[in-house]
Amino acid sequence: MTTATKDWSGAPSGRQRAVAERTVRSIRRRRIRSGIMVGLMYAAAALAILPLILIIIHLLRLGGSAVNWAFFTQMPRPPGEHGGGMANAIVGTLILLGISSAVGLPVGIGAGLYLAEKRVTPLATTVRFLADVLNGLPSIVMGIFAWELLVKPVNHFSALAGGAALGAMMIPMVTRTTEEMVRLVPISLREAALALGYSRWRTSLSIVLRTALGGIVTGALVAMARIAGETAPLLFTALGNSFWSTSLKAPIAALPLQIFTYAITPYDDWVAQAWAGALVLVAIVFVISLAARIVTRRRFSAGD
């Protein structure tokens, strides 16, 4: 054996020691660099949620005191008269959410299912692209368009017009999440249904859509949370209303509009009410988002 000259038991040679030292130095350097990077990531994560925390603290400080039982049950009062609430605006926002869901969900889910089934046809590609454009459309444009279409011809503002404008904004969001969720359903499941003698549409509705339902509900709730605070489309459509109204054909109050109206007045009472309204609006969005999270979690613990 001429090559077996390595001495495993003896003291390290000078060369070996140099290599070892270099390795130790290099590991230390990497550890330091890794530590810095991890620290930066933590800082970025903290910064990302900082605005939300600041907003909530601010809202609680300025609006918290005005949120009481009366705020939810009473009507707005004239400036100077203490108390009062935004019952009409809270109910109005819920009604608008209802109308927009009635408009946006069926159309959005239907279109999403279509896109998922007909992935590459020219029409599907076009619809997908236009949905993305619609998603990026400034909401003020949506408002003015709804005004032209639904307010101007009948000569009065209405809850219906506001709900339609918001619903139109929901459509692209719901479409895209529905498509994503339906695509997640394995093709093997679709084949299993077809092999049992299910027709295509029955496979889509009772197997594919049902399997994707949890994700679609989550997407719908996220879209509702997104539009709950929209103000611009409502300026030309629902308009706002300082009185109690649940008529779909009349102007209707909405929290974002009421906040806007109150916040720009010089009256301290009303400004405080505006802050309280903002707090309640954030709470509504928070509850919807929380519901979306719960639905998502149930979906992943039950299936897959």
Partner: peptide, 13 residues
């Protein structure tokens, strides 16, 4: 004509 596939495909819902 019934069919069974390579991977089990129970309907998860």
């Amino acid at each position: 004509v019934g069919m069974v596939f390579q991977r089990p495909t129970p309907f998860p819902t």
